[in-house]
Each structure stands twice: as structure tokens, then as C-alpha cells.
Amino acid sequence: MENAIKKYWPIFVLPTLAAFCVGFVYPFVQGVYLSFCKFTTIKKAHFIGLKNYAYALTDSSFWQSFEFTTLFMIISTVLINVLAFAIALALTSKIKGSNAFRTVFFMPNLIGGIVLGYIWQILLNCVLSLLEQPLLALDAKYGFIGLVILMCWQQIGYMMIIYIAGLQSIPEDYLEAAKIDGATDRQILFKIKIPNVMPSITICSFLTITNGFKLFDQNLALTGGEPAHASEMMALNIYNTFYSRSGAQWKGYGQAKAVVFCIMVILISLVQLKFTKSREVQQ
């Protein structure tokens, strides 16, 4: 059996590898190439060197969206993980109907971002209108808060499932031994549970950071970047550069921004992975 696997592994790897090359490697390489070109369609691209990057890196709207995105990423990552972990703790203690709760909390994840964005836009605008406050599209502050609420609502359930799996994999004997030694609930949480769910924390914080950074649908549907680009995140900024301007040069600018954006996402998630991995413990 093992020999067969050793012998035939290329056949098993091939479909995925082919799909990966066609669906990821090729478009990625071409995308990087296009960021050095002026083009309308990918067939008519003229190499123009670094001009696109010169524009992308000096575009103030791009850096404004970077600030907005970073702030959003930090706040949403912290909130989502803390809340998801708290709920996971609650639902792993033996309370009645915890399975039903898990299902309910997880459900928002099954709805697509665009739909959620529009539903929350209606909800939040109704609330703001009752409070006699400017609506979402008029005030970037409310747009930001709205996005955070929306993302928390959508993602907490998902992260909660991962934390629950992590918490359930902590050996009962650790907890029992701690209790016998007279550890308080607080000590058990910080000295035993959290160090033991570090792998889950690594996964969850990776997912929330990248999701927060790459957020597009919810941003498009909830605020559309209004007012005047003030609530525009990086992905939407790139999209707008690409499609809402006229003239051939904009596609190249958008492409250059996208490459810069991609590098940022990779760097940030690498740093985060290194940081949380170093805190994982061996069971």
C-alpha cells in the first residue's frame, strides 16, 4: 500500500497541481507582468516599466484606504477573536442546548457578503435615521462602525467553531489536575486553556487578519466607499481604480496597486504566523 502511494504520488498530486497552476500560478504571474504595462485588455499590453508603481505609491486615496483598512483590520481582529473565544468557552461548559446555540451562531456565515451588506445597510440606516444621525453613506465614522458590526456578526460563529474544536481537544486530565491543585477558574483559563488552544488562535487570527485586510463585498454593499472614498478599503479602491475611470492607463495603475496590496497581505500574515506560532505549546 505504502509502496503504491510512493510510486503513484504524481498521479494523485497532478489534478490539484494542474488546477493550482491554471487557477493561481499563471494568473498571478501574468498579473505581476501586467502591473508593468499599459493595457485595456490583456492581449494589448505595452510594457512601460515602473510608471504604474510610481502612480500607485503616490496616490493619496490608496494610502487613505490603507489607513482605513489597517484600523479596521486591527479592531475587527481583536473583537472577533475575543468574542468568538468567549462564546466558545460558554458553549463548551455544559449548558443546555449548546448545540442549538452553535448552529445559530454559525449561521450568519452561510450568507454571502453582498447580501449581508445590503441587509445591514437597511438595518443600520433605519437605526441611524431614528437616532437623527447622518446615514451610513454620509459619515465614514458610522460606515466604519457598521462594517465592524457586520464583520463581527458574520465571522464570530465561524471562529467560534474553531475555538470549540480547540477547547475540546484539551485533555481532561490537565483540567482535573489543575482543579485538584486548587487552581482558580481564572488560572485555568490563562495557564491551561489559552496556551493549549494556541494553534486555534493562530488559525483564527490568520483568517481574521487576512479577511479584514481583503474585505471587499461587505464594503461595496454596505457603504460603497461613501462619502467621497472616506470609507473605501483597499480592495474597493483597486476595483474603483480599475473600473470607474476612463482611459487605458488606469488598468495598469489598478494592477500595480493590486500587486502592492498582495505583498502587504503576505507580509502581514507572515509576521502574524511567526508571532503566534512561537507561542504554541506541545501537548
Binding site: 456565515n109 452561510l110 450568507i111 454571502g112 457578503g113 453582498i114 447580501v115 465561524y158 471587499f216 463585498d217
Partner: peptide, 8 residues
């Protein structure tokens, strides 16, 4: 979530 994320 891959199903849920389809909108993206």
C-alpha cells in the same frame, strides 16, 4: 464557508 463565501 466556501459555500457561504460564494458571493465574493
Amino acid at each position: 464557508t466556501a459555500c457561504g463565501g460564494a458571493a465574493s
